[in-house]
Amino acid sequence: STESVMAQTRTAQDQQQSAPQAANTCLACHNNPTVTAIFSTPHGVGSIAGSASNGRGCESCHGASGEHASTMQSPAVVFGDGGGRFTASDVEIQNRQCLSCHQTTETVHWAASAHQSADLACASCHTIHVAPQTALIERTDSGLCLSCHLEQRSQLNRRSHHPVAEGLMSCTSCHNPHGSDTVALLSKSSITDTCTSCHTEERGPFLWEHQPVTEDCTTCHNPHGSTQASLLSVRQPFLCQTCHSEAFHPSSLYNGTGIPPAGAQQNLLGTSCTNCHSVIHGSNHPSGSRLTR
């Protein structure tokens, strides 16, 4: 049914059900902590329609399973991998059970999302029968994502990285795994909006804008981690020279003649081009057209 949200108000009918009476039939066999932990979570609270203590009890999620109770056949809906005893239900059937309640702002774009089209089940990431009140995820969310996104796991260990491994950020700081209209499941409406929600000082609008900055931060930066400073995808000055080949220094060939002991080239040492063009994201100085002031 798609009639209810998970968090519904108490109704008179709901109040007649007290946990875990609605699940008593199931608990006759399944009365162990790996199952009953759900009664310490919103999924087990009798006042919430669709919970295991309300109305249809465990069948709210597992479907009509009379045959299971009487003959030990598979429940109507088997989540996850079936635990080795039963064949898991089709992912679409599993997810339909969850989404019948979880219609929220976060899941509004699930139907056309990358994870949905990759046949990912809600139970691939979420574990319902565990005690923590909010996350319902066995591992920290970054560890969970990185168990599949192997490249990003490596990139987060590089010289320059956001503090994800350190626990100060998580994948969901930027991404919405439940679906998004933005590239890479970003929570904000664009890549630039995502980056500048924390780096608000770079929003401008500046008098002298740097055009790629206004369009897409990933033109120059790799947000998951880089072997170069400041999450740059390519080292300066070579990154800058892919777009700038004006006369004199922007068009010069920078090489070992500019490194001690052979030489000391100001476009190579220190912070390279940003030794001078330091306000590279934009300048609001009336003489800042070259992003130096």
């Binding site: 192997l150 490249e151 796991r153 490596s154 990139q155 995808s233 390519v234 070579f238 020279q241 892919t242 080949s245 004006e246 006369a247 004199f248 068009s251 010069s252 060939l253």
Partner: peptide
Amino acid sequence: IYYNYENYDNQQSGFARRGGGNPT
């Protein structure tokens, strides 16, 4: 255990140019 190898290769070209009073 996990292993990852990544290789990025960027090839770019340029033309060293002087302007001003002694333009190339």
